[in-house]
Simulated assay, not measured.
Amino acid sequence: MNPFAVMVMAHLKTQATRQQPNQRLQWKLEVTKSLYRRGYSRQNILELFRLVNWIMTLPEELESSFNTEIAAFEEEEKMPYITPLERFAQEAGVSAGVLTRGREDILDILETRFGPVPSSLSDRINAIDDATYLKTLLIQAVTLSSLEDFERAIAPNS
């Protein structure tokens, strides 16, 4: 599964489980475990997991269940890709870091898919301080078919 397929799958399963948090938990576990099974490098797993974690949000009690099950999976498979320190940082959810990471992820995806991102567009993305809107843009960066479509999608909101 290529990285974009992982993000599309996370997005589709998030949409499909909008009112079904227990089902979303199961899909988040499946998507996350698939990252380990695909043989991605440690760095790629961490980057993709950050995006999956951002897209597939869970209620606090289910997030705790998710963390417990992934820790057990890592132990069982001898794959400690997400260190306790990294997990703690994710749980702390420092908003400035989340916003910065979200902006960087959007720009990385756009550049990977479409080539150089014009500075006017990157400036507009870097000016966004709304995590929910950044999440929407991240999904659009993965799913829209061109940089021009993305620019049209962001135009009314920036």
Rank of each mutant, 00 (worst) to 15 (best):
W54Y: 14
R42F: 10
V52M: 00
I106P: 12
A92N: 14
S64C: 04
Y133S: 07
K33I: 01
G115Y: 06
G93Y: 08
L85Q: 14
M9A: 11
D149I: 00
T132C: 05
I125Y: 01
Y133C: 01
L62I: 01
F88W: 12
L48E: 11
R37D: 15
E74Y: 03
F66V: 02
T14A: 09
T57K: 11
T112D: 14
T14S: 13
T132F: 07
E61L: 10
E77L: 06
L48H: 13
S158V: 09
R37I: 03
P21V: 00
E77Y: 07
R124W: 01
V31N: 02
I154E: 07
M7L: 14
P80M: 08
I82L: 15
T68A: 12
S64P: 00
L58D: 13
T132I: 08
I125W: 06
L29Q: 09
E69N: 05
Y40P: 10
L58E: 12
S158H: 08
T100A: 14
G97P: 02
I154L: 14
M7E: 07
L85S: 13
A96E: 09
L144F: 03
A127P: 05
R42I: 11
L25K: 03
S41I: 01
P156E: 03
T112E: 14
F88K: 15
E148G: 08
A71W: 00
D129G: 08
S120D: 12
N44Y: 04
P156V: 00
N22Y: 06
A96W: 04
P21A: 09
R42T: 14
V31L: 02
E47A: 12
L99F: 06
R101G: 12
R103H: 10
T100N: 15
M7D: 09
R152C: 00
P156S: 05
L144N: 01
S122D: 09
A10G: 09
F49M: 10
L121F: 05
L46W: 03
L99Y: 06
G39P: 10
R37L: 08
Q15G: 13
A155F: 13
L144Y: 02
F4C: 02
A10H: 02
T32Q: 07
D123N: 14
T57P: 00
Q20I: 00
K78E: 11
Q23N: 07
F88Q: 14
F150H: 11
V98S: 10
S122V: 07
V31F: 02
V6D: 02
H11T: 03
A153W: 03
P21G: 10
E47H: 12
L147N: 08
R42P: 06
A5M: 08
P80T: 03
E76P: 04
Q90L: 15
S34M: 04
Q140M: 09
F114G: 07
